[in-house]
């Protein structure tokens, strides 16, 4: 009996060692990040409203629910957005507010922090349930003058609450926007995005945007992959938001529980 136990233990150890070897070799094969010089960081360590030297707000519903038929009204109220416990917390609530059935929040670094190229990374825990659509994304700093999609959009992370193991990364530009954006989804194995924090990032340089989740590089978008003009050689700003409903995700249903919160541990930008 004892001998048998020891045999099992040995095989477990062998297996564990094998797995470790495997994961080591995966790491070695893949160069996930190369840019390590920190140029901007918000660790969300000061309780209260988000740091106004970095972040401004989008308020209201935009045009046609921010162009996507989204259902929420974005506010800057603390019940929708606050920094607490070392995290930015964007909370979607089910409440009738100025004609909208939900409230939530969206912050952007427009005019405060804009940068061409670099590594943009955030550590986020998702809300859960049908119809919730959190996102971490970039828009071209010339969005007001040239308009969308000419300004370009880099979606570092988009998530559908009803697909808890999946996120998507995409670029939108002239000739490849909305449904024809260039995108790829990443599926977690044996885990989900709404039970713990995960790291979402891009490394963006001249003629490439690399997408990664945690320590896995899962996509590279280059000019030859887009079906139009490459508009990613200029400064972009950061947006963090939690949308409710809209074309990308569909509406919440009776099983979606509110309130729902998107937790952001940090946003960091490297060069």
């Amino acid at each position: 009996m004892i001998k048998r136990n020891s045999i099992i233990k040995k095989s477990v150890f062998t297996l564990a060692a094998l797995l470790m070897l495997l994961s080591c070799s995966t790491d070695e094969k893949q160069t996930v990040i190369t840019m390590t010089k920190l140029v901007m960081q918000d660790e969300f360590d000061v309780n209260g409203a988000p740091n106004s030297t970095i972040w401004g707000y989008n308020i209201g519903t935009g045009n046609n629910g921010w162009g996507n038929n989204e259902l929420e009204y974005y506010t800057d109220r603390p019940e929708n957005i606050k920094v607490l416990d070392g995290m930015l917390q964007i909370t979607a609530k089910s409440e009738l507010y100025l004609g909208s059935p939900y409230t939530s929040a969206r912050i952007l670094s427009k005019g405060r922090f804009e940068q061409k190229y670099g590594r943009f990374e955030a550590r986020i825990k998702m809300p859960w349930g049908q119809g919730l659509w959190p996102a971490f994304w970039l828009l071209g700093a010339d969005s007001d003058t040239v308009g969308w999609p000419q300004c370009g959009e880099i979606d570092i992370m988009e998530y559908r609450g009803q697909q808890p193991t999946k996120i998507g990364g995409a670029v939108h530009g002239p000739g490849y926007s909305g449904a024809t954006s260039i995108s790829k989804s990443y599926d977690l194995i044996n885990d989900r995005f709404d039970t713990d924090f995960h790291i979402f990032g891009i490394e963006w340089g001249k003629n490439y945007i690399n997408y990664y989740v945690d320590d896995v590089l899962y996509n590279q978008i280059t000019p030859d992959k887009v079906t139009g003009e490459w508009v990613f050689d200029k400064p972009f700003y950061i947006i963090l938001n939690l949308a409710v409903g809209g074309d990308y995700v569909g509406s919440p249903n009776g099983e979606t529980s509110f309130p729902q919160t998107m937790y952001v541990d940090y946003v960091r930008v490297y060069q």
Binding site: W128, P164, T165, L188, N190, D191, R192, D194, T195
Partner: peptide, 8 residues
């Protein structure tokens, strides 16, 4: 199985 995807 240990799916790791059963939550809430």
């Amino acid at each position: 199985e240990k799916l790791g995807t059963i939550a809430h």
